Amino acid sequence: MDAEYVFRVRLRLEPAAESVRVDPDSAEATVTVSRDAPDPGTEGWLFFRNALWRGEVADQRYARQLAADWLGEPLGAIESVEFREFQADEEYFDAMKGEIASNLEAFKADNVSEVLSKYLGSSIRLPSDADE
């Protein structure tokens, strides 16, 4: 079982020492950050519910703080965070849908499809999607 969240993070590079200069004064870099998704039903598996809405970052400040922690950078260096996609194998996705189905009241939804749309939008990619 395997799944991950993929984010695009824009950050500002600033040298740690005064003897080092970055030209221009602040250079921007964009990196792709992949974060493993905890197994459904385990601690942290509700990350998508807590951080995303309709396939977008729900709270930019919170996402910037997460990216700063993931990258070991100060919060001020993180310009923006964009959710790109949720990638999962069939086994993980089936387990996730099963957990969601058994906890629909926690999502204030009537069915699993509504939950997936509400939080991940159309940003779900399964290995079979790449074959088409």
Rank of each mutant, 00 (worst) to 15 (best):
D2F: 13
A3I: 10
A3L: 10
E4A: 12
Y5E: 05
Y5F: 15
Y5S: 03
V6C: 01
R8Y: 02
R8G: 01
R10Q: 09
L11K: 00
R12N: 08
E14A: 14
E14V: 14
E14G: 09
E14Y: 01
P15M: 04
S19D: 14
S19W: 04
S19C: 10
S19N: 09
R21H: 09
R21F: 13
R21I: 11
V22W: 00
V22R: 05
D23A: 05
D23I: 15
P24M: 05
D25T: 08
S26T: 15
A27S: 12
A27Y: 05
A27Q: 12
E28D: 11
E28P: 03
A29S: 06
V31Y: 01
T32F: 04
S34M: 12
S34L: 06
S34V: 13
R35P: 01
R35V: 15
D36V: 13
A37M: 11
P38L: 10
G41R: 13
E43W: 09
G44Q: 06
W45S: 04
F47D: 13
F47L: 14
F48E: 02
R49A: 15
R49T: 07
N50Q: 14
N50I: 01
A51I: 03
A51K: 11
W53T: 03
W53C: 03
G55P: 06
A58E: 13
A58R: 15
Q60S: 12
R61G: 02
Y62F: 13
A63C: 05
Q65N: 12
L66F: 05
L66K: 11
A67E: 01
A67C: 03
D69K: 13
D69W: 04
W70F: 14
W70M: 14
L71F: 06
L71S: 00
L71W: 07
G72I: 02
G72W: 12
L75A: 07
L75C: 04
L75T: 02
L75N: 07
G76P: 00
G76W: 09
G76V: 05
E79A: 14
S80M: 01
V81G: 00
F83A: 01
F86M: 05
F86T: 01
Q87N: 05
Q87E: 10
A88N: 07
D89W: 01
E90M: 10
E91Q: 13
Y92P: 02
Y92V: 11
F93L: 10
D94L: 12
D94P: 00
D94C: 02
A95Y: 08
M96W: 15
K97S: 11
K97N: 10
G98D: 15
G98Y: 07
E99Q: 15
I100Y: 08
A101R: 13
A101P: 01
S102H: 10
S102I: 00
S102L: 11
N103E: 09
N103G: 08
L104F: 09
L104N: 06
L104W: 07
F107T: 07
F107M: 08
D110H: 12
N111F: 02
N111S: 13
N111P: 00
V112P: 02
S113V: 00
S113N: 15
V115C: 04
V115W: 03
V115T: 04
L116A: 08
L116W: 07
L116N: 05
S117M: 08
K118C: 03
Y119L: 05
Y119F: 15
L120P: 02
L120D: 02
L120A: 08
S123Q: 15
I124L: 03
I124G: 06
R125S: 12
R125M: 07
L126K: 11
D131I: 07
E132A: 10
